[in-house]
Amino acid sequence: MTKDEMKEKITEILEDIDDSIDYASEEHLIDDHILDSFAIISLVGELEDEFDIKVSAVDMVASNFNSVDDMAQMVERLMA
């Protein structure tokens, strides 16, 4: 899977959780309190299923979830 495909899939998952956000332009989803911790729980479950990764408490930091780019980077790291 290319990185662009990965980002596309992540955006799809995010839109399923809340479709009122423009994920392409947001870079502070957590810092600006756009996504809350309940949304993050759903997101983590979906990411784990989709990419067959294991997200642990250690990965639960804002810098991993602030943008689609950040999430893709985390997924890539966890897939390696």
Binding site: S37, F38, I41, S42, V44, G45, E48, D49, V55, S56, A57, D59, M60
Partner: peptide
């Protein structure tokens, strides 16, 4: 909060509940 939600037990339940009862109940 995050250690509980990312624990193996919670994840197992999440997976099971999503398949069996849907995303809403799981969440």
């Amino acid at each position: 909060f995050y250690p509980v939600t990312t624990s193996d037990a919670a994840k197992k339940w999440n997976k099971f509940a999503r398949k069996k009862y849907g995303k809403y109940i799981a969440k």
